[in-house]
């Protein structure tokens, strides 16, 4: 399963970023192979519609799951339509996020959070 996590850094010891559209990096973890790679978030550079740009990027990557703090209305709409499952997590180290996900401890995001949350 390919899981994308909004991240503050490129390492599994770096913290998850609770912002989706304006996070610095996306870490894409392959939970079976135990491998991961890192993308710079296209959304953080955009003047407006950061959530849309970020969502488009991870949809194009063909991931199965996204883990972040919350999704704004536009990003939620896209992730939902793309059939990607979204889970909510607090700020913690990426390796802990993955453990929590594997143990089924994360709550699914079923509705959009406030717009412009990460400004």
């Amino acid at each position: 399963m390919r899981v994308v996590i909004s991240a503050t850094g490129k390492d599994i010891n770096d913290l998850m970023d609770v912002r989706f559209g304006r996070c610095r990096y996306f870490q894409i973890h392959d939970t079976e192979a135990g491998e991961f790679r890192v993308l710079e978030n296209e959304g953080q550079k955009s003047g407006g519609g950061a959530g849309i740009a970020a969502a488009q990027q991870i949809i194009d990557e063909g991931v199965d799951v996204v883990i972040t703090g919350s999704l704004g209305p536009n990003a939620f709409d896209l992730i939902n339509k793309a059939g990607i499952k979204a889970y909510k997590c607090n700020e913690m180290r990426i390796k802990e996020v993955i453990d929590k996900f594997k143990n089924g401890e994360l709550e699914e995001i079923n509705m959009a959070g406030p717009a412009h949350h990460g400004m």
Partner: peptide, 23 residues
């Protein structure tokens, strides 16, 4: 069209183009 838009007003999901008119 999605690639051409500089304002993230368009997105593509499963061959469907979605329009965010406010952007």
């Amino acid at each position: 069209c999605v690639k051409a838009c500089n304002f993230n007003a368009l997105a593509k999901v499963k061959d469907n183009i979605l329009v965010f008119d406010k952007l």
